[in-house]
Amino acid sequence: MMRRVALAIALLGALPVLAGEIAPAERRSGYDFMSSDSKAMQDDDTANPAMLSVLDGETLWSTKAGAANKSCGDCHGAVDVSMKGVAARYPAFDAASSAPVDLAQRVNLCRRQHQEAEPFAAESRELLALTALVAKQSRGMPITAGDDPRLKPFVARGRELFLQRQGQLNLACSNCHDDNWDKHLAGSAITQGQPTGYPIYRLEWQGMGSLQRRLRGCMTGVRARAFDVDTPDMIALELYLMSRAHGMAMDAPAVRP
C-alpha cells in the first residue's frame, strides 16, 4: 500500500501539466508551422501585407474623431512608447464592467468614452488597423495576459470552453490543438492554436482578421454554432488561449496560411 502511494506521488511529480496540456518547452507558435515562403513574407515588413493595415492604423492614431475631437495620440502620445507591451496583456480586466475586454473592445471603449465617437464595427478596416498598430508594439515581448488575479474565473471559463466538445462533429478545441497539434488535417498542419500574432493577415482570407474571426471559423469547421462577436464566452476563450501562451513571444501582425 505504502509503496503504491509512493509510486502514485512519484508519477504525479513527473506530470507537471494537466493531461493533454502542452508542456511549456513544447509550445510552438503558428509561425513555426509555416512554410519558409510564408515565414519570409512575415519577416519582411515590406512584404508582410499586415503592415499595410499598420500604416492605416498610424493614420487613424493621429486622426481627430468624435464629439471630443481628439485623436488617440492626443491622449496616448507616441504609439511606440505608450502602447509598448499592451497587446501582450490583453484581454485585460476592465474595472467598469468587472470583466475582461479584448484589445478591439478596448479601442472601442476608448472611442466611446474619450472621443465620444461611434465604435468601429467588428472586423472593420479601422478596428483591424488600430489593433494591428497596437499589437505591433508588443512584437517580441512575452505574453502576460491572464496574470491579473481578477481574471482567474474568466480564464477558467475559457479553459472549460476549450475542453468542451461542440458541433455536429463533436470536437473540442483541445482534441486537435492540445492532443493532435503535430498531425495534419487533410494535409494542413493543425498547430497548437497559440494566438501570438493577432490580428493576422491570413492568406486564406486574403485579408486581415481578428482572433475572434479565426475562432468563429474553427467553430463553423466543426459544424457548431459559433460564439457571437464579443460575447462573454468568446472573450473568455480568447483570454484562455492567451494565458495558455503565457511567456511566448508576440509576433503580431503575423502572416498565417
Binding site: 466538445r165 461542440q166 458541433g167 455536429q168 463533436n170 463553423t220 459544424r223 457548431a224 454554432r225
Partner: peptide
C-alpha cells in the same frame, strides 16, 4: 448528446 450544433446541421 451534442452541444451547440450549427443550425444548418441541427437534428441531422
Amino acid at each position: 448528446g451534442l452541444t451547440r450544433v450549427g443550425s444548418a446541421w441541427r437534428d441531422k
